[in-house]
Computed example of a mutant assay.
Amino acid sequence: MTHFGFLSTYPPTRCGLATFTEALASELATDGVPAPIIVRALDVRDSGPDPAVVGRVPTTTELIARDRVSMRTAVRALDGCDVAIVQHEYGIYGGPDGDEIIPLLRSLATPAIVVLHTVLSEPTPHQRAVLETVCKLAATVVVMTDNAREILNRSYNVKPSKVHVIPHGVPVPRATSVTKRTGSKRILTWGLISPGKGLEWGIRAIAGLRDTVPPVEYVIAGQTHPKVLAHDGERYREALQQLITDLGLGAIVTLDDRYRDATELAELVAGADVVLLPYDSRDQATSGVLIEAVAAGVPVVATGFPHAVELLGRGAGVIARHQDPESMAAAIRTILEAEGAAEQMHQAGLRDTHDFSWPRVADHYRAIAHRMVRVAA
C-alpha cells in the first residue's frame, strides 16, 4: 500500500486547495497504510491546532514562505513517503510567482505528482518558466480538464506523456433536508469572496430580474478570502454591500458570511434554483464550486472561463459573457422561464459528473502512484 505525502494549503486554512487536499487525503488514508504526511504551505507560522484527516490523524509539518529551515524540514517529511502529491498554484508558495517550490522539488528524493490548479494561456515569461520547471521536476503532472491539458501541450514545454487528466472530485451525494421555499427562486453564489469573483456583475444582473414572476432572491455565501482579509480587510465586501444599497436590492440580495460545514453547504446548494458564477477570470482551469454545483444537479450560469466552457457545454448550464450583467440576467431568465430547461440541465449535470466522486478520483491517484512506485523500485 502506498504511503502518501501532501504539500498544499490545508485546514484550518480555508481555501479551495486546502479543501481539495483534505478531501483527497481522507480518501487515500485507507486502513493498512501509514497515516498521510501533510506539509502545510503558509505565509507565516501557524500556532493553531493540527488538522485531522477524516478517520486518520496525519503527521503534519509546515512550509513557511521565505524560511529555508522549514523547507528542509518539509523535504525530510515528504521523503518519508512513497509518493508526494504537490498542489501547484502561483499564490501559495513564497517568492515571485511561488518560485520557492522549485528548490523544494529539486531537493525531493520521493517522486512527486504535481497537481496544476491554474494553467494560464498567456503567462508572463516568469510564470511560464516556473510552471515548466515544476513540471520538469515532477514525475507525473495532473490537470483536471481536457482544456488545461491542451494548453499545456500547445503553449508550454512539458512532456505530453507526463500529463494525466483526473477530474476535480465531488462529495458522494448525501440526503439533504431542504426546506422548500415558496414565492421566490433562489440564485446562489458561494465560495471565498475576493476581487475577481465578479460578484458586482452578478448583483447588477439581479437588478435586471426584478420583474420576474415568481420573484428571485440572490444569496452570496462565503467569507472573505483570508489573504484578501489580511491585506485589505473587508473593503471588497463593503463595496458590494454599498452596491446592493445603491441599486435598491437590499430586500432580495444577501451577503452571508457564515461558515458552513459540508452538510450545511450541501443543504444550501440543494436549495438553490440556479448557481451563478460571474467570475472575471478568462483563464480559470478548475473551479471546485462549478463542479460541485453541476454534480448536485443545480443549473449553472457561468462566465466563459475554460472549465465552465468545457463542463457546461454538455448541457448542465449556460455560458454568459464576462462583465455583462444583461447576458447573465438573460441566461438566468432562460433557466427559470423556459419550459423544461431546468430539469434538462439537472439531468445533464448528474450524467456528466457520475464518475467524479472523491472515492473514484482517489482510485485514479492510487493507480498512478502504484505505477510510479513500481518504476522507482
Rank of each mutant, 00 (worst) to 15 (best):
A251D: 10
V213C: 01
S281M: 11
A262F: 15
V165D: 03
L265V: 08
R237L: 15
H225P: 10
K227M: 13
N147W: 09
A175I: 01
L209T: 07
S161I: 08
L276S: 05
G222N: 10
Y156A: 10
T286H: 05
D261Y: 10
L247T: 06
V163K: 00
L209M: 04
G191W: 00
I166P: 00
K185A: 15
S184V: 14
R210H: 04
D257G: 14
P195N: 10
V219T: 06
V269C: 03
E200A: 12
E234K: 12
I252M: 03
T176A: 00
L229D: 03
V269I: 15
A272W: 02
T245P: 12
K162V: 05
E267S: 14
A262T: 09
K197M: 09
I252A: 10
L276I: 07
R235S: 05
T224W: 13
R186G: 09
R154K: 14
K197C: 06
T145G: 04
L209S: 01
D211T: 02
T212D: 00
E150Q: 15
L255P: 07
R186Q: 14
K227I: 04
V213W: 06
R260W: 12
V165N: 01
L240G: 11
R210F: 07
A148Y: 05
T286Y: 08
G202L: 04
E200P: 04
P214C: 05
H168D: 01
D256L: 10
L240M: 13
H231P: 02
T224I: 15
A221F: 10
Y279W: 05
A239H: 12
A262Q: 06
G271N: 04
G196Y: 02
A266Q: 08
V172G: 00
L152T: 11
Q223Y: 11
I151W: 07
A251M: 08
E238A: 12
V216M: 03
L192N: 04
D273W: 11
R149C: 11
R260T: 11
L192W: 05
E200R: 08
L152E: 02
R237I: 14
E150P: 08
R260H: 12
S184F: 15
